[in-house]
Design a protein around this nucleic acid. Structure first.
Lengths: 153, 153
DNA sequence: TCTGAAAACCAAACAGT
DNA sequence: ACTGTTTGGTTTTCAGA
């Protein structure tokens, strides 16, 4: 299930950058006929290797100027505690990323906000309301250096 | 430049989830003729509101099973120090995200690795080699709860 | 697993409202 | 600013190697 040749990797690399490229142009750039290329792409998609295609929206253009990294500690690590927290955090539209972590804090979140007042609202209405939370630590991003969706192939 | 109506928002919402949808289907789902829809999409792209389309590759399928959050402190905050660090960090293919932060640490990084040995290599060859670094703190993600590219519209 | 051809489908441009 | 039409290009399926 997990052995890709050079052409598969080319297809993935190109689609990472240009997700809406036509199959015809993709085929030409990887050196296959359009039908052969289409078939390989179909396999990559159906196997889940390519899990989807997404438009990238400019956060700035949408007025989301603020990115906040939030560390959260819970009152315990029982499965039920974690499950309830995770179900709740998934409902917050401003939480882009959430990982269960090793170390001092239990979870790390990446939260998008329009401005400080917007973040104050999110903190009050969503983050503070999450179940089993005992500590919240917010760090504000001053500038974005890198933000890419995938590791370079 | 920044006033979108309900149809624009629908277009963006749909393309966030299905970046490779055809213009014909997109038009039908937002209730426009294909040509009107195409014209709106063109404006959204040319204005930079939609900054690109990207295939999402399954990290697991590519053997990147490990996600590490790295906090880094530098020896100072002079512009030259930051600029040199940032130029260097951009060269590391495993660093997916890097933000300049307020607070205890200067930068936060999100690093993808195949396994612990791979992360050891990245830490030794890339992270420790970054200029002006005085402290590195690595936290390992145990499980991914949420990872979406954009805030819900 | 590829190529090539054919049918179904789609995008882009344009004229009209 | 949207619609409908037209033209040329694209995707997909299928036969054959």
């Amino acid at each position: 299930m997990n052995s890709f040749d050079a052409i598969d990797r080319s297809i993935m690399r190109i689609l990472q950058d240009r997700g809406r490229i036509s199959n015809a142009e993709l085929a030409e750039r990887v050196g296959l006929s359009p039908s052969a290329c289409s078939r390989r792409l179909d396999i990559l998609e159906k196997s889940g290797t390519i899990s989807g295609y997404h438009a990238r929206l400019s956060h700035a253009a949408l007025d989301y100027k603020m990115m906040v990294i939030v560390h959260i500690s819970l009152s315990g690590q029982f499965a039920k505690t974690l499950t309830e927290f995770e179900a709740a955090v998934k409902l917050c539209p401003n939480v882009l990323v959430c990982y269960l972590m090793s170390g001092e804090y239990d979870y790390i979140l990446r939260v998008a906000a329009k401005d400080l007042a917007d973040y104050e609202r999110i903190h009050r209405d969503w983050l503070s309301a999450l179940p089993h939370v005992v500590k919240i630590n917010s760090g504000f991003a001053l500038r974005e250096i890198i933000d890419k969706p995938n590791v370079g192939l």
